[in-house]
Each structure stands twice: as structure tokens, then as C-alpha cells.
Amino acid sequence: MDEQPILTAKNLTKFYGSQTGCLNVSMAVYRSEILALVGESGSGKSTVLNILYGQITPDSGSVLYWDCRNRTVDIHASTEAQRRSLARTELGFVHQNPLDGLNLNVSAGANVAERLLSGGERSYRRARLESRNWLEKVEINPNRLDDRPGLYSGGMRQRLQIAKNLVTGPRLVFLDEPTGGLDLSVQARLLDLIRRLQAELGLAAVLVTHDLGVARLLSQRILVMKDGQIVESGLTDRVLDDPREPYTQLLVSSTLQV
């Protein structure tokens, strides 16, 4: 199968002083797939995710993205303006801490609408309607549309951040522990939402999580990281049911029924 990936990373390496952020990490992400990146905290998952998105510059290695017109974009060789334009339209990034991804000075509705308007939507009315729509999809009561996110609970902020990222119909989203602080019922709803978008719109996602249960339900393929390196990778069900590396076996056996 000669399939065109939507994103590839080659030999990503990043040091923080003498500390290893990540070492020789390579991967490909395909359309309509969810790729999970798992491992303990400090294993380099978030570093890799931020390099893929262009927020951290690697010491060496490259990230290539194929945009909606099938043009190749070298993420770390492109200008800040190019990166921002991609980030507004085709890419999304859901931060572990929702405050990093939200504008606290405007209302929740405006947070969502803002992204739509900067992505090219001209009608404010349509943007507002679409924002309301998305708040409903993530189970936020639309009568909270005009509240500022500062007044939201942690879980609501996270849902708002996810709505904000998905409203422009991105092709690829980076999810950094997106369901970490959420109630189980809301977490389930979000997992379902992401799966639906994947099936209906062909959304691709790179999901960083330490929850192997979430990885199993959501992802088709998985990369296991330890000390900045990928130690095992493959089909999610295969890696979790038949782990071969000592570290993966430890990870799987330390988890309550996944």
C-alpha cells in the first residue's frame, strides 16, 4: 500500500541542556487515523507533540506536512506567518492546560468564533451560530455562551478548548492529554466526538496520553516512548495485548484492565 501520509517526522532530536527531550523520533500520520503516543511523564511525549506542531524547534530532524492542496510544508523551515495560517485552518492543538489554549479576556462564544473568523468566516452571525452549535456538541449549555472562560470549571474549559480547535474543521489535531482532568462521563462523550469526526470528516489526530484505556478505545496505532525514544510501536490492540518490550510489558501490566 503506497499511501500518502498527512504528516511525517524524521529523526527528531531535542536536548534541554544535558537532558534528552527526544532522540531520533520518526513517525508518519495518515488521514483519518488516530495515533497514540504513550509513556510515563517525562518520556518526551509532549516534546514530540510540540515539535510536530512547530512550537518547539528540534535540534535536528524535520517535520513535513501535506496540506489540503497536497503541497508539502516543511514545518520548521516555514515562516512564522505560514505556520500561523496553518494553525488557524488545518491544524489544531489541544493543550493539557486549557488556559494555554483559551483567550480569557473574551467570552466563551467569542473564543470559538474568533478562530472561525480568523480562519476566513466573514459573517459574525454565522460564526456565533456555529459557536453555539459546537458548545452543544461538547455539552456546554449554550446559555453560558457569553460567560468568560475564567468563570468555567476546569472540565468545561477543556471542552471549550476542544470546541475552539475543532470548529474550523481541521485536518489534523494534536491532543495533549485532552481528557486528563475531565469527569469520566464527559471524557466518554469527547472520545465519541473525536471518533465521529475521524469517521465522518477524515480527521487525523496525534494523541498524547498516559491512559492506556483511552489509547485503546481511540487510536488505531500506538507509539510507546521511554527516555525520549520510541521503544515499541504498532497496531494499538497488538501492542497492548502482546507487548514485546520490557518497558511496554511493565506499562501494560501496571494498568488496571485496559
Binding site: L184, S185, A188, R189, L191, D192, R195, A199, R216, L217, L218
Partner: peptide, 19 residues
């Protein structure tokens, strides 16, 4: 049966066809 919680049964069963 391993499925995402809160998804209706009818949707779970439809999934292979939607795929």
C-alpha cells in the same frame, strides 16, 4: 465487548458499515 462508553447500541452496531 470493548466500546467507548455512552455510545448508543445502535451506533456501535452500525460502525463497521460506516467504516
Amino acid at each position: 465487548l470493548r466500546v467507548i462508553p455512552r455510545v448508543p447500541t445502535i451506533d456501535i452496531v452500525s460502525e463497521p458499515l460506516l467504516a
